[in-house]
Write a protein that binds this DNA or RNA. Structure first.
Length: 301
DNA sequence: GGGCGCGGAACCCGATACAA
DNA sequence: TTGTATCGGGTTCCGCGCCC
């Protein structure tokens, strides 16, 4: 499988011990909170770290594939969950029919929310690091780049380390995903994830251009920086503000040849965490300076 | 090498904020 | 109100360095 050949399997934290307290809880949300938790999942599905180590990555892998990740219809998501479930737990005793009201659906959606919020958080961190390292933050340049929502400025975006690093966080999240024949998962190419990554970077640069992105130095031992972004729908990473951008980007990304897309993925590999050896320090040291000569969104060289 | 301790990443959950 | 997304931080575990 492609997973087994990946040179960088960032082996999710392994759960060696079995869940002690997960014994006999009813398939019902915890009293009071009304929220499902892992404890409500079918007994045994977390054994061997299958749930977090395989099931969730496989689901995110599917979500990052070719569909608009903002608008996956619940029924369609459920169906995909079911197919993945049947495959991941094929050899174990754990059978389950997933329902829209059940624990699996809700807990998995929670994990998917965190998957998507990772797209929002990564470029914040990356670009913050960039500003600090390059000491750009206090210069006036940050307001000169009023690229905003202008798609023209996004030509050749595959070269941007910001986007590649953000894209890489997707591969870190889905590490451990397994082959799901029922979803043709081997041919899923993370195009939606790239669209999300590009959108997320665009969001942060837009915040910077708007002056909505504040860096504050926290006076403690050592130097700690805090990123401050205002609350509110227009500043967040959500479908209302960024769904359209994602959809627009998804079109040309979908139209890319497999070969060219593979080149992009290859470009992310230096940012994908490796397991043990050759632990690449994912610094931003390779920020390039040739951002001016992009001609076409789809250009490759 | 093997045990130990530390630092930090990953995972998860409850609280909170926000939307329907 | 109920339902959903996000935040903050507690807990667990990994990986590394240190000492024996």
């Amino acid at each position: 499988t492609e997973a087994s050949q990946s040179s960088a399997p960032p082996s999710k934290r392994l759960k060696t011990k079995q869940e002690e307290g997960a014994m006999e809880l009813a398939n019902r949300p915890k009293a009071g909170t009304g929220k499902f938790t892992n404890q409500n999942l079918p007994l045994g599905c977390q054994d061997g770290n299958l749930w977090r180590g395989t099931y969730i990555p496989s689901l995110a892998h599917w979500c990052g594939g070719h569909v608009d990740p903002w608008t996956i219809e619940a029924g369609e998501l459920r169906d995909a969950m079911q197919v993945i479930w049947d495959e991941v737990y094929r050899d174990s005793e754990v059978e389950h029919f997933i329902t829209l009201k059940g624990a699996i659906f809700h807990v998995a959606k929670q994990r998917l929310n965190e998957w998507r919020s990772g797209f929002a958080a990564t470029p914040l961190m990356v670009i913050t690091t960039f500003f600090i390292q390059e000491k750009f933050y206090n210069s006036e340049q940050r307001t000169e780049d009023n690229e905003g929502n202008n798609n023209k400025t996004w030509t050749g975006m595959w070269h941007s380390p910001f986007i590649l690093q953000t894209f890489a966080s997707h591969f870190n999240f889905v590490a451990g995903h397994t082959k799901i024949p029922g979803l043709d998962s081997e041919n899923i190419t993370a195009r939606a994830a790239l669209a999300l990554a590009a959108t997320a970077v665009c969001r942060v640069l837009t915040l910077v251009a708007q002056g909505s992105f504040q860096l504050e130095e926290i006076p403690v031992a050592g130097t700690v920086w805090e990123v401050i972004v205002p609350d509110g729908e227009s500043f967040g990473f959500n479908i209302q503000t960024w769904g359209e951008m994602t959809r627009k980007l998804l079109k040309p990304i979908t139209a890319l040849s497999d070969a060219n897309f593979a080149k992009i993925v290859e470009g992310t590999q230096c940012y994908v965490k490796t397991s043990t050896k050759g632990k690449e320090k994912s610094s931003t040291a390779t920020v390039s300076d040739n951002e001016d000569d992009f001609e076409d969104l789809l250009e490759f060289r």
